[in-house]
Amino acid sequence: MDDNKKKQWTENTIFLVVILGCGLGVDNTYYLQIMTFIGINTLLALGLNMLMGYAGQVSLGHAAFYGIGAYTTAILSGTYGISPWAALVCAVSCAVFIAFVVGLPTLKLSGYYLGMGTLGFGMIVNILFREWSTVTGGSSGFVGIPMLEAGPVSFMSGRNYFFLVWMVVLVAVLLCRRILSSRMGRALRSIHDGENASLAVGVNTHFLKLQIFMFSAALGAVAGFLYAHFVMFISPESFGFMVSVKMVTMVVIGGMASVWGALLGASLLTLLPEVLHGFAEYEMIIFGLILMVVMIFMPQGLTRGLLDIYEHSRKRDKRHGN
């Protein structure tokens, strides 16, 4: 028990040090920007990971909550001039409420049916963003999202925004950790291991799935909020089907049921397109290939896959040594 706690403390400390190091050490605006995007994507992956990795429920429409967060804050603070922080509260409540209404019938489904249900929901929300142009600006996007300010601190500078995003990530990581080590987290993991047994020992699986769906929607909305005020321009494409797929991919590639896996997956999927920019035309081919190859050969994700390879080679070395 205590070993585990100590390990978590060291992990968190290292994480904090790395954030501080990156934030203070990096001066290049472009790099700071990329790292901020990694943070936003990590939030998305963390939320979805709770649902997919721990509760074992697939969602192919999670970008909807990301978009709901972004559009709510954009409309409230951009069009109506409400303080972004109040808009944040509205955005999160809105996403949580929608997750509740949609999750109630959808989470009764399982397997492919659940996948299709969430996909359908995601598509409908995206079409709404595109077609409700008087409010959302339609397919040409929403312009004029104000920047964030908190008293004397302006988040105009890349560095400040970087810290804001990563502090939110840190809090989210701690929250997820707390949930996972609690009664609720255990029940959640039990659904993943065997839903029938979980039901039979008295876990209200449907309610629990709904709760975690709402939680991951909230994280998605927070990510959407941060994204909207960071780029100050949003359009429906940023929240479409491919984004939902990307989110799933982050979770799966990083490794399901691992908080750090979400970070790894988010980093990879954010960096990859940037690196592949050099290949311009070949970007999609390479992206698709990587996705397939990782899934074919390391279905538990890169984190576990690479560890396996490392352990395997170490074993072999030992045998050779003997």
């Binding site: 697939v58 799966v252 899934m295 074919i296």
Partner: peptide
Amino acid sequence: ARTPQPIVLVIITVGASIFLRG
């Protein structure tokens, strides 16, 4: 595919779809 679970296969086909489009 090493472990032909639905979720893994779904992501492989999604990868293939991006690849083919590319």
